[in-house]
Amino acid sequence: MRRAPLLSLLLALGALNLSAADARVRLGEALPAHPWTAAVPPEAREVIVVYTHDCGDLGPLWSAVLGSGLTVRAVNTEDVPTPAPAGVNVWRGPEATAFARALRVGAYPAVLLVQGGRLLNAWEGTFTGDLGQLD
């Protein structure tokens, strides 16, 4: 068995999408600029769902976040309009994509639990429906 030379290994690693591996939503950070002028009180929590057209069936995700009783915000990124449930105002366009990138979202859909404009928790790519809230 022949070992791969270092150059081959480096090229193989370079072919991987390492930028996605480096993307990490950082808890405690303030949200980047957004269009939500009707802010919730600082002690209240809200949920932000960041998604794209290729996330698949988001029905269970929407059911879970809408059932939380929290204010729900939707950010549809990557320039392909995708609907959200009735009553959820969706932010789309280049600014929405820039918002997700400024947050360093690594996988869609991302569910962000926010309080006072700061990230409390984040789920990227998978979401079980548990926001980890204590009643």
Results as ranks from 00 to 15, higher is better:
Arg2Gly: 06
Arg2His: 05
Arg3Cys: 09
Ala4Val: 13
Pro5Ala: 12
Leu10Ser: 11
Leu13Thr: 07
Leu13Tyr: 05
Gly14Ser: 12
Gly14Cys: 11
Gly14Met: 04
Gly14Gln: 03
Ala15Thr: 10
Asn17Met: 08
Leu18Phe: 11
Ser19Asn: 08
Asp22Met: 12
Asp22Leu: 14
Ala23Leu: 05
Arg24Phe: 00
Arg26Tyr: 03
Arg26Met: 09
Leu27Ser: 08
Gly28His: 06
Glu29Tyr: 11
Glu29Pro: 03
Glu29Asn: 14
Leu31Pro: 00
Pro32Arg: 13
His34Asn: 15
His34Thr: 00
Pro35Ala: 00
Pro35Met: 02
Pro35Leu: 02
Trp36Cys: 01
Thr37Asn: 10
Ala39Ser: 10
Val40Asn: 01
Glu43Thr: 12
Glu43Lys: 07
Ala44Gln: 15
Ile48Ala: 06
Val49Gly: 04
Val50Asn: 02
Val50Tyr: 06
Val50Ser: 07
Val50Ile: 15
Val50Gln: 00
Val50Leu: 15
Tyr51Val: 08
Thr52Pro: 00
Asp54Ala: 04
Cys55Arg: 06
Gly56Ser: 06
Gly56Lys: 07
Asp57His: 07
Gly59Asn: 01
Leu61Thr: 09
Leu61Cys: 03
Trp62Met: 04
Trp62Phe: 07
Ser63Asn: 07
Ser63Phe: 00
Ala64Val: 06
Val65Ala: 03
Leu66Arg: 10
Gly67Arg: 01
Gly67Ala: 14
Gly69Glu: 04
Thr71Gln: 13
Thr71Trp: 01
Arg73Gly: 05
Arg73Pro: 00
Ala74Cys: 07
Asn76Pro: 09
Asn76His: 06
Glu78Asp: 15
Asp79Asn: 12
Asp79Thr: 05
Val80Arg: 15
Pro81His: 10
Pro83Leu: 02
Ala84Thr: 03
Ala84Met: 05
Pro85Ser: 03
Pro85His: 02
Pro85Ile: 01
Pro85Asp: 02
Ala86Thr: 10
Asn89Thr: 15
Asn89His: 13
Trp91Asp: 06
Trp91Gln: 02
Gly93His: 08
Gly93Arg: 01
Glu95His: 06
Glu95Ala: 14
Ala98Tyr: 04
Ala98Met: 05
Phe99Asn: 03
Arg101Gly: 12
Leu103Ile: 09
Arg104Pro: 01
Val105Asp: 03
Ala107Asp: 07
Ala107Pro: 00
Ala107Glu: 10
Pro109Gln: 04
Pro109Leu: 08
Ala110Tyr: 07
Val111Arg: 04
Val111Thr: 12
Val114Phe: 12
Val114Trp: 12
Gln115Arg: 15
Gln115Glu: 15
Gln115Trp: 05
Gly117Glu: 12
Gly117Phe: 10
Gly117Thr: 13
Leu120Met: 13
Asn121Ser: 15
Asn121Thr: 06
Glu124Met: 08
Glu124His: 01
Gly125Thr: 01
Thr126Ser: 11
Phe127Ser: 02
Phe127Gly: 00
Phe127Ile: 07
Thr128Ala: 14
Gly129Arg: 03
Gly129Thr: 11
Asp130Ala: 13
Asp130Glu: 14
Leu134Ser: 09
Leu134Ala: 06
Asp135Trp: 10
